[in-house]
Design a protein around this nucleic acid. Structure first.
Lengths: 237, 237
DNA sequence: ATAAGTTAAAAAATCGATTATCTTGTTTAA
DNA sequence: TTAAACAAGATAATCGATTTTTTAACTTAT
């Protein structure tokens, strides 16, 4: 996977399931990936203050690489840094969830249209593969990690050939933010069935190059996810 | 000003002209602001590798705060971090300039429409003030810094009440990226007259709540800036 | 000559300890 | 009784030194 924030030419590695960067390079980048995953996955309580010394033990690194990772995460928006009192997990709010969703609708819609215009046949193949892998995940066996990873991958693949590096970057960032809400509480989406059905239809429409309908469906898909996220958020207050 | 990346509750201070964070808190945040300004202002050559020890002297800080700032800037997109070989200034390319411009058109247009829908009368006052200050800058006296700062402020004010924190964040980031091109070479925009005229018209349209025309003008304004940036880029190769 | 191997110098990343700042509980003065 | 002042402990930020990795110059073998 190799997210664009990590230090660039990660040796790739076997690309383990959950977005981890293989054997990985620096200590700093390893903590970054790990912490990012945990923050998005809801391992921390929103608003919580992070005790650096605790993190140091938890992630088995020294202060310097840890602080470097925290600084990156703050610039990325997964942490808030306060003047002389360390880092904390950003609070959640209904308003922000709505905001994120709105912007996602605009940006992912745009990106999808462009991807459908530009994507080649290699893209079609990747898309089919990603959707297939996602569908194949055994809910009973999966601890949630596998589905989450493949879901992210699917959406990444879908918009990948949109032609705009910056659009992709922002979309990724918004996904992380959105998932802080969607992944509150229980592991598996209750309506996975429905969502997977939409994923399948999205592939169909992409292959048919029906940008307009695809975008409508994407809107719908985001709205569905929004409802899940909102419910989770409201139950979690 | 107090950019959203700096550590939050900066004591405000007298808010010096050029985006600096007043007396400022941590060494880390001071270097961050300073480096950000220099990177956007073109003090470094694109593609250049940053020698940490040189920066350490140049900005008068130790390794730790410096590295923390560099890490933040990398997450923000003003630096590229390579696996075990430090930081470098991102290369410039025609493709990227086009990309940035495209996304700016979409996002700032959207933000402007929303701002015009939401902005109250305090906003109208702020807008008039920002435009006025911008117009008043004496080109002969100004070393370029003042105009640049007020220009940024004007555009910030224009979209401020759009209602989306994330949109504002992305727009700010894109501005920084765009300015890496626009501010190549000579200090003052050759067509400042024209640009200031557009600024003035934008205020007019905003006050009249004419969202549609305002957006068209904004598109035009971005296109004009794009031409400046492109020319600068091509001359700078 | 070219390419693989070797090694010394340079640079990046990390560690351990120090310094500065905040927090909290307690005291003291109004 | 309340609020300002203080002091001790906890936490954040920074420094200086060490370790690791890369770079570049120089061999040596094919």
């Amino acid at each position: 996977m190799n997210n664009s924030l990590s230090t660039s030419p990660t040796p790739a590695g076997p690309a383990g399931p959950a977005g981890t960067a293989g054997p990985a390079g620096t200590a700093s980048s390893r903590v970054f990936d790990h912490l990012r995953k945990d923050l998005v996955g809801g391992c921390f309580v929103a608003g919580e203050k992070l005790a650096i010394n605790v993190l140091k033990d938890r992630y088995q690194v020294g202060l310097s690489p840890l602080r470097e990772a925290l600084n990156k995460l703050a610039a990325y928006g997964l942490l808030v840094q306060e003047n002389q009192r360390g880092f904390r997990v950003p609070k959640l709010s209904r308003d922000e969830l709505d905001d994120i969703t709105q912007v996602r609708l605009e940006m992912e819609g745009m990106a999808l249209e462009r991807a459908i215009a530009n994507g080649d046949s290699l893209w079609e193949a990747d898309l089919l593969a990603a959707a297939h892998r996602l569908k194949r995940v055994d809910i009973t066996l999966d601890k949630g990690e596998e589905w989450e990873y493949l879901h992210t991958q699917f959406h990444r693949t879908l918009v990948a050939p949109c032609g705009s590096v910056w659009l992709l970057r922002f979309i990724e960032q918004l996904h992380d933010q959105f998932d802080r809400y969607r992944r509150l509480g229980p592991k598996m989406p209750t309506i996975r069935q429905e969502l997977d059905e939409q994923h399948h239809q999205l592939v169909e429409l992409a292959l048919q190059r029906d940008a307009k309908t695809a975008r409508e469906l994407m809107d719908d898909h985001i709205h569905k996810s929004y409802e899940v996220a909102l419910k989770r958020y409201q139950e979690h207050v």
